[in-house]
Amino acid sequence: MMRHLMRAYPTLLRIGFAEMVAYRAEFLIWVLTTNMPLVMMGLWTAVAADGPVGRFGQREFVAYYLAILVIRILTSSWMVWELTMDIRQGALAARLLRPLHPLIVYSAEHLAAVPMRMLVISPVAIVLFVVAGPQLAIGDPVRLAILLASCAGAWALLFFTQVLIGSLALFIDSALSVFDIWLGIHSLLSGYLVPLELLPPWVSAVAHRLPFHYCLGLPVEILIGLVDTPSALRGLGLQWLYVGGFFVASNLLWRAGMRRFVAFGA
């Protein structure tokens, strides 16, 4: 099973990449859709024009939102759309007929998108390097390792969250509405719209205990050096705890959904 997977993976990656190339226009539009960080950047640099806000001067805001853009493009997932569509249109049946677990194939397809995303986001990454080069966690091997681990964690957390919500489509029609609510809370509590430390202290404290921050805010703060190494490691620990939790929960729901699927068909 594992060896089969290792042999299958390069092919799946290659085809995933070919699909990304085939859909490059759509992909580019998707990237442009992630323009909110730029708008927020414009807003906060205007606010910071007459003096810094907390630890954030104009340069810090620029670095923060560029980092948000980079991490968001790299780690975000389309799983919930894909899964709900496959369930609705019956393509899930074809996936179930293959001798590899559908979630493994999905994950391979998603990972295949990463190189293309790196390519597209590289200009932004370069600007970020110019703006905040010395602060970035890429010079120091320890901080770099923590950064990579937190990016992988963010990717996995988003993926399994979306498997969880997408699997709801096996039970209810409105899984995408549930995801919409998740997305709304995520935009606020992940640091996507506003750095968590600028929110009222109690909101920020709650947000640091919820999973949303670990989908985006944590790797961003590590990347631009907003957190010291000990608290970064603590954050990383909690992040991977959440990854484990969502992995288990999404698999349980998936299995329950499958029991339903094979009993009623679709």
Partner: peptide, 9 residues
């Protein structure tokens, strides 16, 4: 929800 950024600013 969308009023939050305005309030924060």
């Amino acid at each position: 929800l969308t009023m939050v950024p305005l309030l924060v600013v």
